[in-house]
Design a protein around this nucleic acid. Structure first.
Length: 210
DNA sequence: CACCGGATTGGCT
DNA sequence: GCCAATCCGGTGT
């Protein structure tokens, strides 16, 4: 039986391991009476206080970042470029701003709802292959910010799905790190090897990393 | 209270 | 490949 991920899954200090362990898990949304789900295929870790790419760099506490310090298993959603809602999972101890951005999912169910929300045909590769794309497809908005992932109810949760072996995980530098200086090279992005639903094909990842 | 810019996307050249 | 869309949080007056 598939089961919802427990608090202990998120409540770990090795955020890079949690980022890798999220690959292959099933993200489910039940919003507005419509249920959709997708397998997580690409993640990025953001770890304050040392990470200049994190909104909470230096443990900066603001109205936006306060959710990042919430207990493990909390949803952090923020709006990017005024248009896109980006979904993150809060990990580690309360008070530690360690979060994981989900960058892409492989559609599993509710494709008809995704199709309507994204205004495109179901089964297209572009449906969920970006951090602003799958949130749109799954109805994830800032309204879910600070919600918990630990209960299967209206909203969002994550379930076991398939296991991804270490040899099938590719790591590379994160996206959009122009102002993050040395942090821009940290290989804190993870994806499932040969998966067709990530935000970039494997070849591009290798070129950018090396 | 005004201004600046972004963990992106999609449409047009 | 280039660039506008679109708006809120963060910062400084």
């Amino acid at each position: 039986m598939k089961k919802i991920l427990p608090e202990s899954f998120y409540h770990r200090h090795d955020i890079l391991q949690v980022s890798k362990d999220l690959l292959g898990k099933k993200l489910v949304s039940s919003i507005g009476g419509r249920q959709t789900s997708g397998m997580i295929v690409e993640t990025e870790a953001y770890r304050a206080p040392d990470d200049k790419a994190s909104h909470a760099y230096g443990d900066k506490l603001t109205e936006r970042t306060k959710t990042m310090f919430a207990p493990a298993g909390t949803v952090y959603v923020y709006i990017c470029y005024g248009i896109h809602h980006l979904f993150n999972v809060v990990t580690a101890d309360e008070g530690m701003a360690h979060v994981i951005l989900v960058r892409a999912v492989e559609p599993l169910s509710g494709l008809e709802h995704m199709s309507v929300r994204r205004k495109m045909e179901a089964h297209k590769k572009e449906m969920c292959n970006g951090p602003g794309k799958f949130t749109r497809a799954m109805g994830i908005t800032k309204a879910l910010n600070n919600n918990s992932l630990l209960h299967k109810k209206e909203g969002l949760w994550i379930e076991d799905h398939i296991e991804i072996l270490a040899k099938d995980i590719i790591e590379g530098p994160r996206v959009g790190m122009a102002t993050a200086e040395e942090c821009s090279n940290w290989p804190w992005r993870f994806r499932i090897k040969n998966n067709q639903w990530t935000s970039k094909p494997d070849t591009v990842w290798y070129e950018k990393y090396w």
